[in-house]
Design a binder for these strands. Structure first.
Lengths: 202, 202
DNA sequence: TAAGATTTTGCCCTAAGTGCAATTTTTCTC
DNA sequence: GAGAAAAATTGCACTTAGGGCAAAATCTTA
């Protein structure tokens, strides 16, 4: 990740991460409106003006933690066995995204954007960028799928499925890892076999 | 729509629409940054302060036109024949959303949010709210699907399909109605029959 | 038509957001 | 390793967003 970066770029990445983490923590602790950009800068050990060199608004910084969480996912995705069914690869990708250590932090952000409606658009923007990055990787792995509806739909649908699995328990308490995996399996079963009426399938 | 509203509420709706339209027009004419909220208020014939009684930010007002475009769609959706396959209903809903007179304006907003990255999060937020509204209608029609992954996934996937069909021609010129319908059919074919590899299907 | 409820508006203040130039930090070259 | 070049950080100034508050205007109801 940080492997081949000069000192300068490493430091930039470092402050970027500090700012993103600080913003996320503050939002999680106090709520989106109960802190100022100056607070974020201070916690990140940097000046207010510098914050604006990295982000345009508070909300952007808060959701940016997702980038930190998923960057290694894309690397793993790029190394999937090429002979495997694409949908299996994507399914495992989505599964890894929603489970493991990532789960709690993603869920926290998710809950945060439920509590603060102003945050939601930016969370969605983040999701959108994530899908596009994944799509680029996918096209690099399968150039023959360039400009096909299939590739784009598959990824969007996979992320939607993962989200739905995450969000589905509207009950407040987080899902267990097993429950989450079961939901993901259900969702991907629809993807594999088509959206017939649920009644048809039972 | 406007049928059973008192004079007061009708007027509120009226100014809401004026503001949304004014914001959208200004954004389309000049670009998102080349006008101020004061301009929106002026064009809508209302004070600057009043703008903030309806929207929190410029971007919200710009994307709000979508609400005006889709409100009648949901009414139609609610009146679908109950004995029809749900996926057929949803498919027709998506098709109606993307084609006809709505198409150009939705495409315009879409293009606008490509030109102005700051707008994109709010466009996504709008889409999200739209899906949720549709989901509420769907649950009213099919209460047995409440709290199922199926209903939520189906709708998300349908909208994604419609969007992908709209967006897919990245070529600048808008798609013909026939092309668009063909893409929608392709997308919904995946939904009906599952996401096998494209190669498996030909 | 008068009292009550709701919306609009103006005033004012804080914080967001940005250009610019000075300053500090890193990189490059010899 | 010293000094020039490049890039990042910072402070300062200034415009606009965003929103609280109370007065004015408008609508509703009896």
């Amino acid at each position: 990740m940080t492997s081949k970066l000069g000192h300068r770029e490493a430091k930039k990445l470092q402050t970027w991460r500090s700012l993103a983490n600080a913003a996320f923590e503050l939002a999680a602790e106090r709520g989106l409106h109960e802190f100022h950009i100056e607070d974020v800068a201070e916690r990140a050990g940097v000046s207010r003006r510098t914050f604006f060199n990295y982000f345009n608004r508070k909300e952007e910084a808060v959701v940016a933690v997702v980038d930190i969480l998923v960057e290694d996912l894309l690397v793993e995705f790029e190394q999937e066995p090429a002979d495997e069914s694409l949908i299996d690869s994507v399914c495992r990708l989505a599964s890894r995204a929603a489970t493991g250590e990532r789960g709690p932090r993603l869920a926290a952000l998710h809950e945060l954007s439920n509590r603060c409606p102003e945050l939601r658009p930016y969370a969605l923007g983040q999701r959108d960028r994530m899908v596009r990055s994944a799509h680029e990787v996918l096209i690099r792995l399968h150039p023959e799928l360039q400009d096909t509806l299939y590739s784009w739909l598959l990824l969007n649908v996979a992320v939607t499925a993962a989200e739905a699995a995450l969000e589905f328990g509207h009950t407040g308490q987080p899902l267990s890892q097993d429950d989450l995996r079961a939901r993901l399996d259900e969702a991907f079963d629809y993807l594999r076999n088509g959206f017939r009426q649920p009644a048809d399938r039972r």
